[in-house]
């Protein structure tokens, strides 16, 4: 198992390195959430607002919701196209779930994809690529002051 500390990333999903969102395909439906590096870099997430089920996502990068963390309010930008079929009501009530259980109870939306293969092709997948993505981003974020130089994550654990 490739190892570099305490950031966990399951290898059964695809990652958007810009938005720090993960995508997991389950019976043809894409479950989407924020990865652990994204939630660490954002700071304390205090609010999550998600578009309703039925909302179409016509292009990659279209907003499927909004989050607030440390007085920053930003759009959650979709990593794949399709239509939202379900939103997670629990994160609306308790956004801390995004930090506490990013790959489980803290998921955000489920999307019925419209161009799955094409959209997945631009995402990061596979243990080696995941480690590379996160390791490079940690180094970049430390150099930019987004993560502290001396206290940021130093090791990546890819979960099989």
């Amino acid at each position: 198992m490739p190892k570099v500390d305490r950031l966990h990333l399951p290898d059964d999903r695809y990652y958007d390195p810009q938005e720090h969102l993960w995508v997991k395909i389950e019976d043809g439906i894409a479950r989407v959430g924020l990865d652990q590096l994204g939630s660490r870099a954002a700071g304390t997430i205090s609010h999550v607002d998600l578009h309703r089920a039925g909302k179409r996502i016509a292009r990659i990068g279209a907003a499927f919701g909004t989050l607030e963390a440390n007085k920053f309010v930003g759009a959650l930008r979709a990593p794949i196209r399709g239509a939202i079929v379900e939103v997670n009501p629990r994160v609306l009530d308790d956004p801390r779930l995004v930090h506490q259980d990013p790959y489980g109870e803290g998921w955000l939306v489920r999307i019925a994809p419209s161009s799955l293969d094409e959209d997945l092709a631009r995402l990061v997948h596979g243990a080696a690529a995941i480690v590379r993505y996160v390791t490079e981003k940690i180094a970049e974020y430390k150099s930019r002051g987004i993560l502290p130089e001396d206290a940021g994550p130093t090791e990546v654990v890819v979960l099989h």
Binding site: A62, K71, F72, A75
Partner: peptide, 9 residues
């Protein structure tokens, strides 16, 4: 002073 930022799509 208190600061805030918002960003759309």
């Amino acid at each position: 002073a208190g600061l805030g930022v918002c960003r759309g799509e």
